[in-house]
């Protein structure tokens, strides 16, 4: 019974990959390789190092964009959450940005900043930032009044209040904002590689599609999904490590 969760996870993976394999064998489409072929392609790309070269390229705009969005987004979010004036001034912009399909801005960004790294970093930032800002601001604004009163009653300073009360209390929502922001950042990074110029993983996907090397294309897609999942797991571990008391729960944009 102890191994039930693990067993079911393996079973569930087996069912999905098995279905993939069978669908590839039938085949449902000329462009649908089997799971084993795709896995072989992934292995080949890992061995000859082309996957690592590609990721070095893809991670550049992704990591830069995510880092900027995290620092700027949390900072701005705390500011908006603390100040009524800033809330009034900036919240509407991010509210609109969050509900809007910002991908539409890509043609404009390309015109303004060219097809290089800058545009791609911009795409990652505009996708990732709104949810980070809004989650942080909301959490900071709704810090429970009673623990703030507790802090003042025990002679806490404003700095204490911010770092010992407001930020820890807001941390679960900040992290859920980061989780959503980073996953949006991944969407943005791949979108920019497919739309602006094919580089990195986007290049593997586009190129292998053009020469009908479907196993390589599926392998590249598979690897980026795995990377995103690993990245978010890492974030979750960081949260658990930094804020041990945090309740895990899904909050969404």
């Amino acid at each position: 019974m102890v191994y039930r969760p693990l067993f079911l996870k393996l079973l569930s993976a087996l069912i999905l990959f098995g279905a993939w394999e069978i669908a590839g064998r039938i085949p449902v489409s000329y462009a649908f390789p089997t799971f084993l072929d795709s896995a072989a392609a992934l292995w080949r790309m890992t061995i000859d190092g082309s996957l690592f070269v590609a990721y070095a390229e893809t991670l550049k705009p992704l990591v830069t964009g995510v880092a900027i969005s995290t620092v700027l987004g949390i900072g701005l979010g705390i500011w908006i959450g603390l100040s009524r004036v800033f809330d009034w001034l900036f919240s509407p912009i991010f509210v609109v940005m969050q509900s809007a399909p910002l991908a539409a801005l890509i043609p404009l960004l390309v015109m303004a900043y060219g097809i290089g790294l800058t545009s791609k970093v911009f795409v990652v930032c505009i996708m990732a930032m709104p949810v980070i800002v809004l989650n942080t601001a909301g959490a900071v604004r709704h810090t429970p009044e009673n623990i703030k009163a507790m802090c003042s009653s025990f002679m806490g300073t404003r700095i204490d209040m911010l770092f010992k009360i407001i930020i820890p209390a807001a941390s679960p929502l900040i992290f859920s904002g980061l989780r959503l922001g980073i996953s949006a950042g991944f969407i943005g990074a791949i979108l920019s590689e497919l739309k602006i110029t094919p580089t990195g993983v986007g290049d593997i996907i586009t190129f292998s599609r053009s020469i009908a090397d479907y196993p390589s294309m599926y392998a590249a897609i598979f690897s980026i999904i795995v990377l995103a999942v690993l990245f978010l797991n890492l974030l979750e571990r960081t949260e658990k490590h930094l804020f041990k008391g945090n309740d895990r729960g899904y909050v969404s944009d």
Partner: peptide, 29 residues
Amino acid sequence: RLLDELLLPWVNVFLSAPLTALVPVLMVL
């Protein structure tokens, strides 16, 4: 419970996966 344990990992994966990467697959299929 069984269905939940079988499907939930994949739902969570696709919830946060970069879905844009799947678009080329849809195009060829």
